[in-house]
Each structure stands twice: as C-alpha cells, then as structure tokens.
Design a protein around this nucleic acid. Structure first.
Length: 665
DNA sequence: GCTTAGGTTTTG
C-alpha cells in the first residue's frame, strides 16, 4: 500500500527512531541458529472469532477506555473497549501492579495491539482479561500520523505486517467510526456538561479526606467566573510566583474519592488529561453565579486522570501555546493587573436597568454612512428610486417566521437563488455514483495515494479513498484533502470529522470526476459546498494537484472551486422586514451572508448554538406579543431600486451596511 | 495472596 510508503517518508522526515526490537526469548532460541535472532510469528484473532477460555493476540481500535486507576485490590485497573472491522466489540479488564505495564491509551481512536490476552465469557459476552505475560502496544489512530509504538514492555516485536495492519485499521476507522471533534479548551467550556481537558498542573492541595484540589491551566481563559476552592496558602504545593501570575488563567478542579490517591502522586508541571470533568453551575448566596469543576468519584464514562508524556503531540502543541501565552503575559503584566483590579468587585448591573438601556438604544446600528440623517418612511415611499437612506424604524413583522426557511444558496454570477438540498438527496447521488466501479488505473498517481477496502456489511461495497499528498507526503489528517469513491453519506460525514476536505468523486476512463452538482462538490467540517449548475463548467480533477503543490495548501473552498471550474454557491439569509416609523410602512429585504446577524449563514445548518442565537436576536428585534409602542428602534441603511418586468414596474428596498448591535446578542 | 472490575456520569 502506497499509504505505508507515505508514512515511511513521514517518519524519515520527522526523524523519529523506528524500533525493531526482537525478544530474546529462550523458548524460541532452540529452533533458531545461534547468531540470528528471529521474531516469532504472531497470529492475530479478529474480534468476531474469539473463543471462551483461549489466550490470543489481537488488534483493535479503542472505542472506550478508563485510564488506569487504583482498584480496590492490589493493582491498577484499566478497562478498554475495542472494535475492529468485524464490527464486534470486546471489553477488556486489565490489571497490573505497575502503571507502565498497562496500555498507554490517551484518546478514543488509538489503536492497540494486545499479546497474550485471555478471553472469557462473562454475562453472555466475550471479555478480555490480563493473563500471564500480557503486553500491549498503542498507536495514534490517525491516517498519516507517524507509527510510533507506545509499549508496555521494553522488548517487543514490530514487523512490516504490523505496520500494514495499523494502516488498514486507521483507514477503516476514519470512515467507519465517528470520533469526537476537537478537544475542549477552558475558553470553550459550557456549564452542566462533562468534558476532557488537556492541561498542565500548576498547583495542588489536599482539601479533606475525600477531596483533593488540582490547579491547572491550558492557556485559554474560561469565559465564566470560576470557583476558587478555599485552601490555605501553606497547604498549596506549587510555584508561588507562577500561581500568582497565572491566577486568572488557572481553574480549580476538585477531585474526589478514588481519584485522590492518583492526584496526590502527580508532579507540579505534569501534563495531564483529565477525563469527564463535570462543569457545575452554582451560585453562592449574595455573589454572582460561577462555574465549578468536579472530577467526581467512580470511573463511569472513563472518569479519571492520565499523565501525558512530553513526547505526546497534543502536549507538544499545548507546551508551545503555553509558552506563547507566557511571553505575551510578561509583556503586559502591568496593564492586565490594573484592568483586573478595577473590575474585580461590584461589576454586576441589575437586569432591569440592562433592559431599560436596551429599550432606549437602537438594536441595530449602521456600519457606515453615519453622516446621513434620518429620513421618514413616508418621504421614502413618495420618492423615486434608486436612492439610499438612513432610517429609524420598528420591526413590526418579518418573514419567514420559521427562520430555517430564510437560508438559501445564492449564485453571485447568475444571481439565482435555490433551496439548500437535504442530506437524503446527497445520499441518493452517492449511492447512484457507487454503481460506477473505481478505475484501478487511476489509483496511486504522482499526487495522491489510494486505498481500497470492502465493507463488512451484506452489500460488500468497495470504497476507495485517494489521499492527496503535499510535498510528496501525507499531511496531518486535519490538513489533508481526500477524494472518496463508493462511500455512503455516513462514511463521507465521518471522514469530514477527521480530514480537512472531502471531495466525492467517481471514475471515468481517464480521470476522476465530480458527481452531479446537486450534491456538494466539497465538504469541509460541517459545511457542504455546492456549485451552480448553470454557471459551472467542471475541469479535470488533476487541477487540484496545483494547489497541493503550493507551499502551504490552505484548501480554501473558493480556490478549490476555481481550479475545478465550479462557480461556488454562497449560503445567505433572505428575509423580508416590515418596518414602521409612524409615518408609513415599507417592506425591506435583508440579504445577509454574515454581516447583519454576525452569524455565518454557511454554518447555521449544523450549529444549534447559532440557530438559537439567531432566534434570540429576532426576539430582541421584534419581541413577540409586544405592543408597537414597546418595540425597540432599529437604525438601518436601505437602498431603493427599480424592478421592471412584464407585469409592470415596482420599487423594492434592501437593507445593507447594517448590523445587530453588539450588546443585543 | 491470586482479588481488583466486569463501561453508561455526582449530587461533595
């Protein structure tokens, strides 16, 4: 597989040592010549072929895990649930008195190789459990990432076959398992949720018999006031100067019960991943509400603490970021602290006075043309078009009331508007195109590597993925563009979670080609990009190689569209506002990509938060059930224009250079 | 000496 070659290139460039360590096991020595040590041939059992009472070797992708924790017996325990392309799951219960002898799993999606694991039946299901001589290797599960084993023992085998298995499992997982999005940061925490945090330990303290305090930071600032656990300074372990410097960036995490023992053993400066922290919103009496971070007792949902080594890629990234925060901080220490001392107390404004301010100030504002004075609507209605006006009016009504109906796709070339196609029609086009078999002659070219596999379901579909290389190598998955043939909607969506760009294609005799333009020609993250059927004239796919050859391909949708001959459709909100000011009423159209609502129209379909934000904004501009007198004022800039057609002549109005006021949202 | 946990959130 060319994929492997790419990984090798990656390894060479990364200059990472690749280990082939053969065990010096006596029981094999008898059958070997004295001078040559040859590794035993290991056989790996797929998860759907496990039998009660056997001891086997196996590979699997981590679907769930509990980081090692102190059991009630004598050992550390780690529970790991694996899955493999047979789609069978296996939960393993692993014990060892030595923390390092348990698998070094850091995230769901890691790939593990277990040797000598005992299979037993428990509650009607197969279960894995450590047996004598159990050992493990753990690998990053991302396609294209360096293959560096994290071993539980000093000596282990690693052969070409192992590399091949890992590559295959990575590709299978990329399109068949949904993995969670980017890791949470403190700046992105939300109350009443559970999340995993990658952070550095700055301070720690025993609080009482069953709880222990960890002060940590990740370089970002939590947007909510955070809870500070009262502990005496003398009980707090950590660099006093650093604790003081970072006091506004660290958060207090209180860990309970079984986690206390592990927390105690942590060293200041350790990089940690704390799994399933609970953010609890609480309001201490007579104070503003704040957010509390708890690591509750027990190990449900993988709750626990893991120490990450400094070699971990996430740690390397975090370290760099923390260093940059430190630098910028030391430059502004004075200004930061003076601002903070001003705002530490009594900055609460009661809600009622907030509302009064809102009612006086306009809820929308102009982004330009401030020198214009207001024109009454009556005057505008009696004037000829085209002209531009500044107005102050109230929003009496708007359409559509169902906000999702306001989202359209717009072609700036032919000025056409169309509905956003739904997922079903995309899936239909994908299924339709899957009938065309992938042309092997188009696999593995100078600018992409191809991988094909057969699905495990009844249909035994063949799926081919072409990974576009940059600088002759695969990039990190989050920077990689890939093309897929034969995938279903679910698989395409899964791939978009892990890779930068996904382009669905099908084979012709001499090139890959885009599917019907009723389907998105490109998927990036949550956004599906469409092309205008009228204005596009698709060009050869190999034009993409020119972007891949750029120094740092950014894979911008506009650039991709351009080289592929696609006229990109843009997501836009279209609404009709009925505005009144006491002198008259006029209907003005809002045509907004992002500026008015400060919500990218392209992102709203897949973002509940943005949908709520838009609904709340409309509720502020036009509060339901309110009398006309009590509606807020809108400052808007509008233009009038003429439309002449067979039925006659009409004047229309459009809102522009206007945005929702900052304090409204 | 041969258990521990056996995924599915605490309630501080």
């Amino acid at each position: 597989m060319v994929d492997i070659i790419a990984t090798w290139r990656h390894l060479k460039k990364m200059d990472q040592p690749f280990m082939y360590i053969y065990p010096k096991q006596k029981k094999y020595a008898a059958s070997e010549t004295a001078s040559v040590s040859v590794a035993p041939k290991y056989v790996y059992t797929p998860l759907n072929h496990l039998k009660d009472g056997t001891i086997v070797n196996l590979y699997g992708i981590v679907k769930f895990f509990k980081p090692p924790y102190v059991s009630k017996g004598t050992d550390y325990c780690s529970v790991v649930t694996l899955v493999d392309p047979s789609n069978v799951k296996l939960t393993c219960t692993l014990f060892n008195g030595n923390l390092d002898s348990l698998p070094k799993i850091y995230k769901v999606g890691d790939i593990v190789r277990f040797h000598r694991i005992k299979i037993r039946e428990y509650n009607g299901q197969m279960q894995g459990i450590t047996s004598v001589g159990f050992s493990s290797l753990t690998f990053d599960g991302n396609v294209g990432a360096p293959v560096v084993p994290r071993a539980s023992s000093k000596a282990y085998t690693f052969m070409d076959e192992d590399l091949k298995i890992i590559e295959e499992l990575r590709v299978w997982a990329a399109s068949n398992l949904s993995i969670s999005g980017p890791a949470a940061k403190l700046s992105g925490v939300q109350p009443m949720l559970f999340f995993d945090l990658t952070c550095q330990l700055v301070g720690k303290a025993q609080v009482d018999g069953s709880s222990f305090l960890l002060k940590v930071w990740d370089g970002t600032k939590c947007p909510y006031p955070t809870w500070k656990v009262p502990v005496e300074a003398k009980d707090l372990e950590g660099d006093k100067v650093l604790l003081q410097q970072l006091r506004n960036l660290t958060v207090d995490i209180l860990v309970y019960d079984n986690h206390v023992q592990l927390a105690k053993s942590l060293k200041i400066g350790n990089f940690l991943r704390i799994y399933s922290i609970h953010t609890k919103q609480a309001s201490a009496a007579a104070d503003v509400s704040h957010i509390e971070f708890h690591l509750h007792g027990g190990t449900c949902y993988g709750r626990g603490i893991g120490v990450l080594p400094e070699s971990n890629p996430d740690v390397k990234e975090l370290k760099e970021f923390l260093e940059s925060v430190h630098l910028s901080d030391s430059q502004n220490t004075e200004s930061v602290s003076s601002v903070e001392s001003d705002s530490t107390s009594n900055d609460t404004i009661d809600l009622e006075s907030h509302l009064q301010i809102y009612q006086q100030l306009p809820v929308t504002v102009l982004t330009d043309h401030q020198h214009f004075s207001n024109t009454e609507l009556k005057t505008i209605l009696n004037s000829t078009a085209p002209q531009q006006y500044r107005i102050r009016a109230k929003l009496k009504n708007y359409k559509p009331q169902e906000l999702h109906q306001s989202l359209k796709l717009h072609c700036s070339n032919c000025n056409s508007l169309q509905e956003v196609p739904d997922g079903d029609s995309f899936d239909f086009i994908l299924q339709d195109s899957a009938v065309t078999p992938s042309n092997p002659e188009l696999h593995n070219t100078s600018w992409y590597d191809s991988v094909t596999w057969t699905t495990q379901d009844q249909n035994q579909r063949k799926i081919t993925i072409h990974f576009v290389r940059h600088d002759e190598m695969l990039q990190h998955p989050e920077d990689t563009l890939l093309m897929i043939e034969g995938g279903k909607l679910k698989e395409v969506r899964n791939l978009t979670k892990r890779f930068k760009c996904v382009i669905p294609v099908r084979s012709t005799e001499d090139d890959l080609e885009l599917l019907d333009l009723s389907a998105p020609f490109l998927l990036q993250g949550n956004i599906s990009y469409y092309g205008c059927k009228q204005c596009s004239s698709p060009k050869p796919i190999k034009n993409l190689s020119s972007i891949a050859a750029e120094q740092q391909p950014s894979w911008e949708p506009t650039e991709i569209a351009q080289v592929l001959g696609i006229k990109l459709l843009q997501y836009v909100f279209i609404m009709k506002f009925t505005l009144v000011d006491g002198t008259g009423a006029l209907n003005a159209y809002l045509f907004d990509y992002e500026k008015f609502f400060q919500i990218p129209a392209s992102e709203i379909l897949t973002n509940n938060f943005l949908q709520q934000k838009m609904q709340m904004t409309m509720n502020m501009l036009c509060p339901p059930g309110r009398k006309l007198d009590d509606l807020p004022w809108l400052d808007c800039f509008i233009k009038s224009y003429n439309v002449r057609d067979t039925t006659g002549h009409k004047v229309y109005y459009q809102i522009f250079d206007t945005t929702v006021a900052e304090d409204v949202i």
